[in-house]
Write a protein that binds this DNA or RNA. Sequence first.
DNA 1: TTGACAAGTAAACGATCGTTTACTACAATA
DNA 2: TATTGTAGTAAACGATCGTTTACTTGTCAA
Lengths: 206, 206
Amino acid sequence: MTEAKERVLAAALRLFAKNGYAATSTSDIARELGVTKGALYKHFASKRDIFESVLARMEERDAEKARENDLPEGALSEMESAYRAVSIDDIVEFAREMFRYWTGDEFASAFRKMLTIEQFRDPELGALYQQYLGAGPLGYTADLLASLGLSRPKERAVAFYAPMFLLFAIWDSGARAEATSALDAHLEEAREALKKDLSKRARNRR
Amino acid sequence: MTEAKERVLAAALRLFAKNGYAATSTSDIARELGVTKGALYKHFASKRDIFESVLARMEERDAEKARENDLPEGALSEMESAYRAVSIDDIVEFAREMFRYWTGDEFASAFRKMLTIEQFRDPELGALYQQYLGAGPLGYTADLLASLGLSRPKERAVAFYAPMFLLFAIWDSGARAEATSALDAHLEEAREALKKDLSKRARNRR
DNA sequence: TTGACAAGTAAACGATCGTTTACTACAATA
DNA sequence: TATTGTAGTAAACGATCGTTTACTTGTCAA
């Protein structure tokens, strides 16, 4: 992927995330780049091709990130490596890093908004939205909690992940300080609650 | 509002909720109704007028619902009447009813999806999204919990409302049975936790 | 019975859409 | 130095967009 193509993808994604795919014209993308729309077709076959390249680029980034962290790839949905030993502190810090990624990383943040916008238009995009932001991380969290031996892992996963999901929306509204402090409060509460339940469960097993 | 206009709004909202405002053409709306697009202009001045009439219609419904329930209107955001006496059971049942409304009511469900899609395009729509589905219900919940005398009402409001917000997304993915049972589990857990904390707080005050 | 009005149609309007074409400038290579 | 390929432009294409116009039909009150 050349640097020029990458710049097109970034500009297109920025517009897709704000106005959606349909409401973003090829002229809009070209204007954002300071070129004419004809130039886009030197790098991409069509507008749809640009869109699909954005999806592919996100997959690449996801795979890179997973390789770095030695964590399951596939938007945290394939989770055979959930057998790795994890601690509650690991889970909490991983969650904090994930929130930072989906809000602070420019590409990831725009991608998240784009999927939010496009999820109902095409079942495939709906599945991607779930995989990256909905049922995906929820199920992954449940697997991690289950691997710790906690009871009712699904219910606990909802309690753990749902606030992050809500705070994405609060963050996007511009209330970033509130979202950040609410996230910190949530994660510390969750850390304590999970540790207490884990030690209680250990006692019961003696 | 004549019955014909109402039918236009319902058809338009259905399409707006799936494809978004920009990707929905006047021909699409007319086709859904079995008429030609020219007929729409007998009832509405423009496509934008249709969209704004949908917003106005939702406001009306919200006001009706608030009047019926003797509850605060304005998308549950104006909350001077939070001084009403409420019990934890009231809050839980109100939350269940609210979830049923935003998922089961056809108009409300489509409206919720439409706002989800359009929230980033226009700051005014972003504010509406927050008011109906984000910071609005979150703040209202915090006010209710605070009026009960619970400590850390904001943090508890996140723990109480966030699962509902997440389960909207799970519900929309088609996993309705999972969303429903997860909601029930969440509400019963929350009911017990809140009651326990409330009685503990009452004991401490003796 | 007639005439006004409401609700629809078909066709056309200019604007904009995604895409293609013909052409230009320039950098790297043989 | 000659040539080839890359990345751009300007203009045009047909399709579709939101909207307007001229016209038709049916209903109901004067």
